[in-house]
Design a protein around this nucleic acid. Structure first.
Lengths: 107, 107
DNA sequence: CGTAGATACATCGCCTGTCAAGGTATATAT
DNA sequence: ATATATACCTTGACAGGCGATGTATCTACG
């Protein structure tokens, strides 16, 4: 059983940030690793991924630069900023909070 | 710290169903009890609540009837259906699932 | 009596994140 | 040649949440 769009809403950004905490990466790879991590239970759709990158960059939580591959398709790498790390901690608190609220309302 | 709209998305319906499992109720009361249960951390907005009622009723997960109050404002009561109970169990599984997926992606 | 506040329902229209569909380009394998 | 994998990106539709607004009833207060 996979995860629904509604439930995932709002978690895309923290998921990306969490990934970037381990080091710079690029869209295609982030996508693949998330699928692997979840045993294909959750696939971040490309359109969702790229629109999240735009929002994160505009908010100053990540920054991007082109890789200098001389073979294969070009890659746009993303790096998390200090502001991004802070935001991630906030996100995490929100999530812990939301979890306990939702848990208390379902039974 | 309250809960964000994005994170709550998709949980409104199961929250209402969970409430109705304990017995029939009406909008205003459901709203109040949810606030109490969460110590005012989460307030289901009225517009959200009523639109969820419409969806749930249209999907056959709840049904509604007017109370026979002879004083005060009229109340529209809601009751959960068998189909609603089944749907609630599915929702719960989805939630357990989503929780573990999200947890595995944040750290 | 007027008015404020609680109870109770409802709708309209905007906002925002997700995603299906479509597109581009490079490299490798058959 | 053609398919597949890698890698990026945009557009437009969709749906749920919610601010704003409206209605009606009852109680309390001065």
């Amino acid at each position: 059983m996979s995860i629904t769009s509604d439930v995932i809403r709002g978690h895309t950004e923290p998921i990306i940030l969490a990934h970037l905490i381990d080091g710079d990466s690029y869209g295609y790879q982030i996508n693949k690793e998330i699928m692997e991590k979840t045993n294909n239970l959750y696939e971040l759709k490309e359109a969702t991924l790229y629109s999240a990158f735009r929002r994160l960059e505009e908010a100053g939580l990540i920054l991007s630069y082109w890789g200098n591959e001389n073979v294969g398709a070009r890659r746009r790498y993303y790096a998390i900023t200090d502001k991004g790390r802070e935001a991630y901690q906030d996100y995490k608190k929100d999530w812990e909070n939301a979890k306990s609220i939702i848990n208390s309302l379902l039974k």
